[in-house]
Design a protein around this nucleic acid. Structure first.
Lengths: 109, 109
DNA sequence: CTTATATATGAGTATATACTAATATATACA
DNA sequence: TGTATATATTAGTATATACTCATATATAAG
């Protein structure tokens, strides 16, 4: 009952290796949270300081900082320092494009 | 210290309304799990019966069924019945396109 | 109506996630 | 060195998530 087409590899099974699976799921997981979406949507415009994100989106500073760390670990955002202020900005065009596409798609539904 | 550009609405804030935010986050959440990614990646090829998905991906039948319900609720998959067998297939081109794009991007990293 | 097969569902559990308050760290400046 | 400001981190908690086993439901065939 099992497939035995080893030779032809007829099944275009496109089986995902673990690393790809991990990267893909992590990427989408990053976009799967409303708070992170709002943050990334802000950073789509321009860079923002942590506190400005918090004020603009009405979130606690620690909440924003945690989510920025999350996004930073996945290299979806980066920052530059100016004195004590850290300006965060978007750092992954592919992901930002996914986000924009999906927001557009959901908006003019 | 606060912005006071009420009139001009200089900030192109593109603020996401709650519904959009919900839909977008749900969409990405659906793609944020390895099991669902594997299932959708299978269904990218062609339709599959529940048990075939379970066998192919080495998952419990109930696991597959639960995830299919999840995907069905979001209208990412649909099914047709043939006797006692349910053939599931993909039902959202936009989402499948997001998935493909991201897999490609992650693969030839 | 009984049996067999395919799938769905319910309940329990372990883990992951997101948030919060409190506190630590880092930089600037007097 | 001491104070102020911006951000990061830690620990605790509540909720969400994914999985599994057991069982229910649905269809088909005899």
């Amino acid at each position: 009952m099992k497939e035995t087409n080893d030779a032809l590899a007829l099944d275009n099974n496109s089986d995902l290796d673990e690393e790809t699976l991990f990267v893909v799921s992590q990427t989408f997981k990053a976009l799967g949270d409303p708070t992170r979406i709002r943050i990334l949507n802000l950073l789509a415009e321009r860079e923002y300081a942590v506190n400005d994100i918090a004020e603009t989106l009405d979130l606690r500073q620690s909440t924003v900082s945690h989510q920025l760390r999350f996004l930073k670990n996945l290299r979806l955002v980066k920052y530059r320092r100016e004195g004590t202020t850290l300006y965060y900005s978007q750092d992954d065009d592919h992901v930002m494009s996914l986000l924009k596409m999906t927001i557009d798609h959901a908006s003019h539904n």
